[in-house]
Amino acid sequence: MQNRYFSDEELVAFLDGEDDYANVAEITSALKTDANLANRIDELRLDTKQVAKSFEALKIGKMPELPSAPITSANDNTGFRNAIAASILTLVIGYGAGISTSNSQPDWRDYVASYQALYTNSTLKNVALSDATKQEELDRVAAAIGKTIPIEKLNISTQLEYKRSQVLGYKGKPLIQIAFLDSMGQPIALCIIRSDENEKLDLAMDSMEGMSSAKWSKEGYEYILIGGKDDALISRMASKFSDTI
């Protein structure tokens, strides 16, 4: 009697003991008379325990630092409302109690950092404006602080995708937030406010709310670039923005 043909998939299931997907009785019986079938099985016979063991040789990557406060997704309306509520709560508590444990007065950048800590990839990933709309929005937003920012000056790298901009406020002064996603989907923000002091501050790196940040001041404006944990990226991008904007 001619044995029926077994697919490689069935033979592998047979070897793996996945009896629901291999007819064990038929294969076992066919093996008694079919040398070719035995050869085919040998060609699929792998020491899977050795495969599992081989993974022990892997150098496992380092675990990232996880945020110490809950993050609220802005994916749905509830999440978005919660994010807004949490950011207001953050700002209120920060304003009342002093934003950090240090004795220094919190400045506008501390508030930006608290706000940015609530941003996730989901906050921005679905924002998809046309270039024309982006420029219109940017014109309106930049005008709030008396600046003009052509969109080309935001497209400085493939590592940062410009998403949107908005006007926020700090102590009655307009503060603008220009939001990006980096190539790993991390939210990054460039925030700018008019300076009262008009002094020049060279670019300085800092870590705020567990995020990388760079600050600088020049020609009557104060700046911060903040987001993610990649100091090198923030430093490089901040250096470009400080030249172009």
Partner: peptide
Amino acid sequence: LAVARSKLVKKYGSRSEV
């Protein structure tokens, strides 16, 4: 799995213990 196993066995030869 079938394709992966076939490739790996070809590389190391057919044997029960790799």
